[in-house]
């Protein structure tokens, strides 16, 4: 019955959605880890400004972010012309553009859990590692990261899941170009616009199922993994 229900489904928007979520998550992991580390341990009084900027997508309508990214990166803007001329890159209405938009929009979902976890690591661990002759990088690799593994996995999954549901930013900067920028959420919107409710249901149910499986796996993982820092405090 499920096969019949999904019989006429065009899978390309769903595949593109997964590609977008994967690229965004990998990109954010590379950017988010050092950023979270810097924010967690920086004593600079201006770091609150960076924290506020990173958190803005949490409250800002996605269309606002998408609108300004479109203005900045369209082919007639200074930056858009420069990127196209020297790097051959066009960000507006391209897959690269929606990845960039998603990275900015999902930044707090990656940075905040990791930053909070790093800040909650007892200071004594850092001091002990230093006393045992370890550099900051060695401490990060061998003490900090293994002890915040659960938070990193949570951040990865939340970023991935959040990107799957993105609509406003992607629509504004990418439009709806099949195989390029038309992700599942936009496909649903278009199906509803054309009163094709069955088609909208197909995409919606796949997304609901996917989101549920992702979140369920996070909760199962969090329950089964050992919370090291709690163990430290117990003793």
């Amino acid at each position: 019955m499920a096969t019949m229900f999904l019989n006429n489904l065009d899978w390309r928007p769903l595949i593109l959605t997964l590609e977008l979520a994967t690229c965004t998550t990998v990109g954010l992991l590379i950017i988010g880890l050092p950023l979270a580390y810097a924010l967690a341990f920086s004593k600079n009084k201006y770091k609150v400004l960076i924290e506020a900027i990173i958190a803005m997508p949490l409250i800002l309508p996605p269309t606002v972010l998408g609108f300004y990214l479109l203005l900045i990166f369209n082919t007639n803007s200074g930056i858009g012309i420069w990127l196209n001329k020297y790097f051959g890159v066009q960000l507006a209405f391209s897959f690269t553009g929606i990845v960039l938009g998603s990275i900015i929009y999902s930044l707090p979902f990656m940075v905040q859990p990791i930053q909070n976890a790093l800040q909650n690591i007892p200071k004594a661990y850092l001091e002990t590692s230093k006393l045992l002759g370890k550099s900051k990088f060695e401490t990060l690799k061998k003490v900090l990261l293994p002890n915040i593994k659960t938070s990193i996995i949570t951040a990865i999954v939340l970023t991935f899941a959040h990107t799957i549901g993105e609509f406003g930013v992607v629509l504004m900067i990418g439009g709806s170009i099949p195989n390029k920028t038309k992700v599942a959420s936009i496909a649903i919107y278009e199906k509803v616009e054309s009163l094709d409710y069955e088609g909208a249901h197909q995409y919606a149910l796949v997304l609901i199922l996917l989101s549920f499986i992702i979140l369920l796996s996070v909760y199962v993982y969090n329950r089964s993994s050992v919370n090291w820092s709690l163990n430290f405090n117990k003793k």
Partner: peptide
């Protein structure tokens, strides 16, 4: 600090939760 080679033991023994006892003992060198 890391160049002083200090052995420091406090009241609340600080052991890394992600390491076995053997890993704690060989962590430094």
């Amino acid at each position: 600090v890391k160049e002083r080679n200090i052995g420091f033991v406090t009241q609340q023994s600080v052991l890394f939760p992600n390491m076995t006892v053997k890993q704690q003992l060989t962590f430094s060198k």
